[in-house]
Nucleic acid binder design. Structure first.
Length: 724
DNA sequence: AGCACGCCGACT
DNA sequence: GTCGGCGTGCTC
């Protein structure tokens, strides 16, 4: 069909052509620069084609095309139309325009290019996550590019599990209504996930103004300027963060610009969308999430691409969403690991938005319950301002935090010991259960994978390299966490016993044990596998793994953080930061110490474990200070994110040759080679932010020439997480 | 992945 | 002198 030599396509197009049988080319801008779908690094550059006259109208920049390349038909995006191609190159005709829909806008392409450059990856890899696959049927559905958003046609997501009942009164409200909304619109009796009906009045107030510099930030947004800010949200305010982010987005809308909000996962997205449905109406924003399924995802993507909404919200790939006149990008909880793309080039949504805000001259807001070291770096380098919560407000909303070092207390009562419950935690929980629900955060199984001898409790180690043995679901048998050796037929080095016991205790077992420690109390589990979004304001013990904590309507009377020591014991540069973030995530769900107007007070957080810096930061409820101290320390040690890193991995000979050929001097620290799997070598590079662009450019070009020389393609990861 | 082009051996 | 082996490199 796309073969230009087919007579059906040639019919009528040989008039004025240079050769008989050659189709006539477009008169104006006859050259199309095309980005082709190729996994090969040395082909990661645009190629030019001639636009046949018959494709002139549809071959616009940003459309999907098919082109002949080498011997095969390849998919591609038309990047731009030009008057001339490169000198001395015989151009082939464009194969076909797959769809007239413009799915790759110029700023998104520029962002994707910057991301590919920043992560030393190929442009096509980035575009694959930036532009969802085409679903042809969706394009034919009702609704044209010029049609106004129609709230009566819910072209959006399937009903989210957590979504509350829709309020018909808000349908038809438009995004460009006053950003503060109308107090009379507060729906009474509508209880939705994370939104306290009694607190809704507060949602309509200027929430940003509660942060130092927040009012100014909002005013700048509304005035059409592009300020940049980092913010740690005030805890214990059900529905606070979605309302806060919406307020910023609406301020940007007020200046006539679009806004984009990226959240870590479907659960957070459901919370945000519930609020958006109530406040601006389902038809007035676009939701983008890979979890919605391909067809709804493409349908929503098209609405954004056609400019039918000025607010786009979604998970990490939404960072590339086409938003007309983008004025503000927001990332919520940038420390959440879900923001990192698991496929090449492993880009992080925060970095994508950072690059994009620069390219589109858009404002940026990095908001989180805690504070990542990267966000702190933005403050330290004066790239962004810190919006600090009003201290009185923070004091009222922050819970009382008790650090319980459990060493001596723990062993007294066998029931508490079994439940890993320090006496102080038990006492607080007992008291709190008279006032409301109590959250118990336990570490995820994967977080404490150590195995021990079932008889003598000696930790199980690899016989070859003494690395820790771990039970891997995929393999079934225990294997070494360092060298990967499968330890079949293990026996204890200390006592010879042959059975292992998992040192990890899953949420389900904790439920059992807590049930015994708290007779007559309702104990339920909330984990990733068994999610629970919302719990009523009634006495109960809620056992949850980090990230899966349900929201309590009026906050938890107490929050117990039990597995601190186990979580802290994991090796890794970011362990402290991750643990604090997990604690903050749970602690922010506790009631405030004093209690804000309309909200009960008396919230307590008990954190069990040995004293540590993250624990001190939690007690002070100051994640910013902790991140700042961490960043200072990393700078002194020359470790990320104070510096940037890159990982090169592949067959030993190629990897070594590659690193040597990079030819970096003393300004790039080289570590390696480390044996990484079967015959593979891994190298680590450390370099400054200033050198970042030069280093990644070199990595890309060298990888391209290695690829052209038919060397095996190396894995390159820039700023990899979880390696150090 | 395909296809051109090139260098060298075999056959007319 | 010409045909065709397949090895190397390019693909708009």
């Amino acid at each position: 069909m796309s073969d230009p030599l087919q007579p059906s396509l040639l019919a009528g197009f040989d008039l004025g052509s240079t050769l008989p049988g050659t189709p006539k080319t477009a008169e104006h801008l006859p050259v199309a620069r095309v980005i082709i779908d190729s996994a090969l690094p040395h082909l990661d550059r645009p190629f030019d084609y001639l636009v046949p006259a018959q494709l002139d109208a549809t071959a616009r920049p940003g459309v999907r095309v098919k082109v002949r390349f080498g011997g095969q038909e390849l998919a591609g995006f038309l990047a731009e139309r030009l008057e001339h191609g490169e000198q001395g190159v015989r151009l082939q005709p464009l194969g076909s325009v797959v769809s007239p829909e413009v799915v790759l806008t110029a700023p998104v392409l520029a962002t994707a290019r910057a991301v590919a450059e920043r992560y030393a990856g190929t442009l096509w890899d980035v575009l694959r996550s930036a532009v969802p696959p085409r679903m042809a049927r969706v394009e034919k559905e009702a609704g044209t590019a010029d049609e106004a958003p129609d709230p009566a046609t819910p072209e959006t997501h399937p009903p989210a599990a957590a979504a509350g009942p829709a309020d018909p009164r808000v349908a038809g409200q438009h995004a460009d209504d006053a950003p503060t909304g109308d107090k009379r619109d507060a729906p009474h009796g509508v209880v939705s996930d994370g939104v306290d009906p009694r607190g809704l009045d507060a949602l309509h107030g200027p929430l940003l103004a509660e942060y130092d510099g927040g009012a100014h930030f909002a005013a700048e947004l509304a005035a059409g300027n592009s300020p940049r800010a980092v913010l740690s949200a005030v805890p214990n305010r059900p529905g606070h963060w979605p309302a806060l982010l919406l307020e910023a987005a609406l301020a940007a809308n007020e200046s006539g610009r679009g806004a984009l909000i990226v959240v870590p996962d479907a659960r957070d997205l459901a919370r945000l969308c519930t609020l958006l449905d109530e406040r601006i109406g389902t038809g007035n924003y676009v939701r983008l999430s890979a979890e919605d399924g391909q067809t709804p995802r493409y349908r929503n993507f098209l609405r954004a691409a056609r400019g039918q909404a000025r607010l786009v919200v979604g998970t990490r790939n939404a960072a590339f969403a086409p938003v007309k006149d983008l004025g503000l990008v927001i990332i919520w909880d940038d420390a959440d690991t879900s923001h990192a793309e698991p496929r090449a080039p492993y880009h992080h949504a925060r970095e994508v938005l950072l690059l994009r805000s620069g390219i589109e001259n858009a404002a940026m807001l990095v908001a989180a319950p805690g504070r990542s070291a990267e966000a702190q770096r933005l403050i330290r380098s004066n790239w962004a301002v810190e919006l600090r919560a009003n201290r009185a407000l923070l004091r009222a909303h922050a819970p009382r935090v008790i650090a319980a070092s459990d060493e001596f207390e723990q062993n007294r009562d066998p029931l508490l010991h079994a439940a890993r419950l320090p006496a102080a935690a038990w006492r607080e929980a007992k008291l709190a259960l008279e006032r409301g629900p109590v959250l118990v955060q336990v570490a995820r199984t994967g977080f404490m994978p150590a195995l021990r001898c079932e008889r003598c409790r000696t930790s199980a180690r690899c016989t070859k390299c003494t690395g820790p043995l771990a039970l891997d679901d995929a393999r079934g048998a225990p294997s070494c966490g360092w060298c990967g050796l499968v330890a079949a037929g293990w026996s204890c080095a200390e006592c010879g016993f042959m059975r292992l016991r998992a040192a990890s205790i899953g949420a389900d077992r904790t439920v059992e044990e807590l049930g015994r420690a708290f007779p007559n109390v309702n104990v339920v589990a909330a984990t990733g596998a068994k999610p629970l979004h919302h719990v009523p304001d009634a006495p109960a013990l809620i056992v949850a793994t980090p990230g899966a904590e349900p929201v309590a309507e009026h906050g938890y009377a107490a929050v117990l953080l039990l597995d601190g020591d186990r979580m802290m014991s994991r090796e890794g540069l970011r362990t402290g930061e991750e643990v604090l973030n997990r604690w903050m995530g749970a602690a922010q769900l506790a009631r405030g110490h004093v209690g804000a107007p309309g909200l009960p007070g008396g919230g307590t957080v008990v954190v069990a474990g040995d004293p540590s810096e993250p624990m001190r930061a939690l007690v002070r409820f100051d994640p910013g200070a902790y991140a700042d101290a961490e960043l200072g320390e990393r700078r002194a040690l020359g470790l990320p994110p104070a510096v940037r890193t890159a990982l090169v991995k592949g067959p030993a000979a190629t990897a070594d040759k590659f690193v040597e050929a990079l030819g970096f001097g003393d300004d790039v620290r080289l570590h390696g080679p480390v044996l990484a799997g079967e015959g593979e070598h891994r190298w680590l590079l450390f370099y400054s932010y200033a050198q970042g662009p030069a280093v990644t450019r070199k990595l890309r070009t060298l990888r391209a020439s290695f690829s052209a020389a038919k060397e095996p393609i190396l894995a390159i990861r820039v700023d990899p997480d979880g390696i150090l």
